[in-house]
Nucleic acid binder design. Structure first.
Length: 901
RNA sequence: GAGCGCGUAGCUCAGGGGUAGAGCGCUUGCUUGACAUGCAAGAGGCCGCAGGUUCAAAUCCUGCCGUGCUCACCA
């Protein structure tokens, strides 16, 4: 049988053939399902909805790996887990894609008209919008696919309408005419957060404006000369002596026939430029405020694409803002009004979607009074109802929330939630949940049926995302899901969307449900390339998670990401890291392979006295249980990296390197009982390890468990039934009765002996295959017995075929290793190299001397004895004793060596 | 300009008041009946610098230097 198995179980793990099979199995069995009728405690996560135009990048891989890990863990812990998957409709991005498609057919969205265009977008969505979900499946992410939502689906749209209407009726949403960030390419307003401010090289031009009825000029400095056509004032600082006399006078605005006044305003900074600043209220946020203070005229010289309109002199109308600039500069030059130009680096706002320079534009838009909503949202975090991990992100949140500005939520695009606002013929506004309701309201207002037109704007996508934690659960209906799963348990996301999304969910959640949307926010880092640079398509340094999955398997990727995801740090990812963890995955495969090759005769019903197992068995059980205990703590603290690294250490460093090696002889034993106990413990430790690993590496653990079932190995679910899948098995729990501290220490001591012998062998250049004889001098009967009882351990692991004990008469022609508790002697064929042995031991003695000196200084320090805790003092004293003892034995060794001559 | 993070072995990073750890890399030796995606042994660090608190500082505090990020700023 073992022969067959040997060829049947591949020597290395091949993820490619297995992953899709298991994923399909899990979804068919619906292991992901939450059950809102179950009595089990809920554990809820809502996915940060990726946008439908997206494809899985490495950041998604990290984010969803972490969510999947915690969901799988909690599920195995017996929670009723709901992980809501879904996508957002990405208004601008999606519309851009479909418009591009139309462009290929030489069509514009206007050619189709709004209704048909939107139909077209839905069609696009049904064809291409599920790509990212399919990619999540490749990752192994197992959200509750039965509860998938889309920000534009019916239920969520109802939630959006209700929120808009309620906020409007409370005065927290309002329409206002003011400057907004206008994307001239997309021809829509965008919010402050969607503006990307970049340092760019530019010029500062100094332009002379002639003061009316005089020969004087006042010079203004500007980076945007084209806006001068919209100037309605020149401002100087009221305390600026240079200009004091000019305040109140008029200047003749060059290139136009207009006169504008010189005003005094503290906005003007005497240090900057010339100290006099042109004021263009229609095209600059600061100037707008100045204009408001002084009641200045507002002249908008641009159309919606930032071409000059008829408010500009004829000569310039129809030009783009850049062409207009050139022409104006030329003309000023000719007129001798261009005093000078300077090269400068200044900040220019770009649209984060279009990449075009944003133009401040005066329009009517819809705003949310964010300041008002922020109040409770701030309090929730201040009081600790919501905790950020790592905590310092709370500062970022506070900082933004305390300085929050009104949120412009309307967008002049078609794809999205059209605002539930209708206008009567006299511009009377009706904000209602439906068109019918608007008509009813209109009838009440006008006294008869009146034709209404709906506002054509749609809402910022983040407006609907802000409702995600509760809108996905059925709100505003009081559904069973909402009652059971809200507030959600934890939100896992990246810091880049704390403002965009997290803050808004907190505001909206508290406002509309009266409760925080989640209790914990886990913020993970950004994934960078191995040099620490941000990944970007233009740099060409992106790591495609799907390529990694193809090459190394999803488990390798997942484990790498989890192991690297320490809190508060970005992840520098490289192929060598992934390869390293791929090797670890293979290690588990081979440990399992070893077990399967040795399971003949395994009897799961075999009964034995759990106290009568060997010290090595007790040692591994102790290690295992400590691991389980720490795993729970680390999970509670969101320390996924710690869990992963500890499991790694346990499986490779403890289980494979030591325990499996110890069991090899026992599995070959003639003694049935010994063999069966060994099999049982191997099965127990391996399956527990697989379970501990499963949240991180779902595929390989499922595959191995399935293979193990052929050997009658079984796992139980939380309710105690045997389960076919590890996905729904019960996570290992800490068992105090499996912790054996005494035996644990014994084994650690024996391991030290083995390592010492290996060390001597390596130094002497003894071939691995060659067995050697050793002599041991134990310091006590107890130590003697421990070694004597476990000679086989030293035989098997240190390549020894004879251990003899010496009395006080110590052997001479030997290489000696002094440990606390024992001296180990390895007899050397012929004559030992005295010089090298003496110098080796001398080196060790001087090392000990350094330590001894250090401890001695401490112990001689009165204050240390007085003030340090007793245990510490005691510890230092013991250490001192132990080290001096070791030293004196080494000196004896040296003495004996010198006697050889 | 303001705020925040980071600086520990050649590299990537854990740790964190009681004289430092891992993985990779490196050196040496190994086809040891699970695994060369492996096994064994080893070298390698005044824990960025300077002060302070403390019996004790890589760890806490302050300053500085380096580095990264966020926010603000079209004169």
């Amino acid at each position: 049988m073992a022969e067959d198995l040997y060829s049947q179980i591949e020597k290395s793990y091949n993820p490619q053939s297995l992953e899709q099979k298991w994923y399909k199995n899990w979804t068919e069995k619906k292991y992901y399902s939450s059950d809102n009728k179950s009595a089990n405690k809920p554990f809820t996560i809502v996915i940060p909805p990726p946008n439908i135009t997206g494809s899985l990048h490495i950041g998604h891989a990290l984010n969803n790996t972490l969510q999947d890990i915690i969901i799988r863990y909690k599920r195995m812990k017996g929670y009723d887990c709901l992980w809501v998957p879904g996508t957002d409709h990405a208004g601008i991005a999606t519309q851009m894609i479909v418009e591009r498609e139309l462009g290929k057919e030489n069509l514009s969205k206007e050619d189709l008209g709004r209704e048909r265009f939107i139909e077209r977008v839905w069609k696009w969505k049904s064809q291409s919008g599920s790509q990212i979900n399919n990619q999540l499946k490749r990752l192994g992410a197992l959200p509750d696919w039965g509860k998938e939502r889309f920000t534009l689906d019916e239920g969520l749209s109802d939630a959006v309408k209700k929120v808009f209407v309620d906020l409007y009726k409370e005065g927290l949403i309002y329409k206002d005419k003011r400057l907004v960030n206008w994307d001239v390419k997309l021809r829509t307003a965008v919010s402050d957060l969607e503006v990307d401010k970049r340092d760019v090289k530019g010029k500062l031009w100094y332009i002379k404006y002639r003061v009316e009825d005089s020969d004087l000029f006042i010079t203004v400095a500007t980076t945007r000369p084209e806006t001068m056509l919209g100037d309605t004032a020149v401002a100087v600082h009221p305390k600026d002596k240079r200009y004091r006399k000019l305040v109140g006078k008029f200047v003749l605005l060059p290139l136009t026939d207009r006169k504008i006044q010189i005003i005094a305003d503290e906005y003007s900074d005497p240090e900057k430029g010339s100290g006099a600043v042109k004021i263009t209220p229609a095209h600059d946020f600061n100037d707008f405020e100045v204009g408001r203070r002084h009641g200045l005229e507002i002249i908008d010289i641009f159309d919606e694409s930032a071409f000059l309109n008829s408010n500009a002199p004829k000569e310039y109308a129809g030009l783009s803002r850049f062409d207009a600039r050139d022409k104006i500069l030329n003309n000023l030059e000719e007129l001798g009004l261009l005093e000078k130009e300077e090269d400068i680096i200044h900040v220019v706002p770009y649209g984060d979607r279009s990449g075009e320079i944003i133009e401040p534009r005066l329009t009517y838009q819809w705003y949310v009074d964010a300041k008002e909503l922020a109040r409770d949202a701030l309090k929730a975090v201040e009081k600790g109802d919501i905790k950020f991990h790592p905590k310092y992100w709370e500062n970022t949140y506070f900082e933004w929330m305390r300085n929050i500005e009104p949120w412009c939520i309307s967008r002049q695009i078609w794809w999205g939630h059209q605002v539930p606002v209708w206008y009567g013929p006299d511009e009377q506004i009706f904000v209602e949940l439906s068109e019918e309701a608007a008509h009813r309201a209109a009838k009440k207002h006008y006294g008869n049926d009146t034709e209404l037109t709906q506002d054509s704007d749609v809402l910022d996508t983040w407006f609907s995302s802000g409702l995600w934690p509760f809108s996905t659960l059925g709100w505003p209906e009081k559904t069973q899901d909402f009652k059971k799963y809200y507030p959600t348990s934890v939100l896992i996301t990246g810091f880049d969307i704390i403002f965009f999304w997290v803050a808004r969910m907190i505001m909206m959640g508290i406002k509309f449900t009266g409760e925080v949307p989640f209790k914990d926010v886990y913020i993970h880092g950004l994934i960078r390339d191995e040099k620490g640079e941000k990944m970007s398509k233009t740099k060409g340094n992106v790591i495609d998670p799907l390529e990694i999955i193809d090459e190394y398997g999803a488990d390798s990727l997942r484990f790498s990401l989890a192991a690297m995801a320490s809190q508060g740090r970005d992840i520098k990812l490289s192929f060598s890291i992934i390869k390293g963890y791929r090797n670890f995955i293979n290690k588990i495969w081979n440990a399992s392979r070893f077990l399967m090759l040795n399971l003949e005769g395994y009897n799961p019903e075999f009964v034995y006295d759990k106290q009568k197992i060997s010290i090595f068995d007790k040692w591994i059980l102790t290690k295992l249980n400590n691991l389980i205990k720490e795993t729970d703590t680390d999970f509670d603290n969101f320390d996924y990296d710690k869990v992963a690294n500890k499991i790694y250490q346990f499986i490779w460093g403890d289980f494979c390197d030591w325990y499996i090696e110890i069991t090899k002889s026992k599995l070959r034993s003639e003694d049935d009982t010994e063999r069966q106990i060994t099999q049982d413990l191997l099965v127990k430790v391996l399956t527990s390890s697989l379970q501990l690993m499963h949240p991180f590496t779902p595929f390989i653990t499922e595959e191995i468990y399935n293979r193990l079932q052929q050997f009658r190995v079984s796992l139980k679910s939380v309710t105690g039934e045997i389960t076919k899948s590890i996905v729904v098995s019960a996570y290992p729990t800490f068992n105090e009765s499996e912790v054996f501290l005494k035996e644990y220490k014994y084994v650690e001591f024996l391991k030290q002996i083995v390592v010492s012998i290996r060390n001597i062998r390596a130094e002497l250049g003894v071939m691995p295959a060659q067995r050697i004889k050793i002599l041991i001098h134990p310091d006590s009967d107890k130590t003697h017995d421990l070694i004597s009882d476990n000679k086989h351990f030293i035989y098997e692991l240190a390549g020894v075929d004879s251990v003899e004990f010496t009395g006080d008469e110590k052997p001479k022609n030997c290489v000696t290793q002094v440990l606390s508790g024992v001296e180990i002697f390895v007899p050397v064929e012929g004559i030992i190299d005295l010089d090298s042995e003496i110098s080796r031991i001398n080196r060790e003695v001087s090392k000990i001397d350094v330590d001894l000196k250090f401890i001695e200084d401490k112990l001689n320090n009165k204050k240390f004895i007085e003030r340090a805790p007793k245990e510490i003092v005691e510890k230092e004293k013991n250490k001192f004793k132990e080290l001096s003892d070791n030293k004196s034995r080494m000196l004896e060794v040296l003495k004996r060596l010198s006697e050889i001559n």
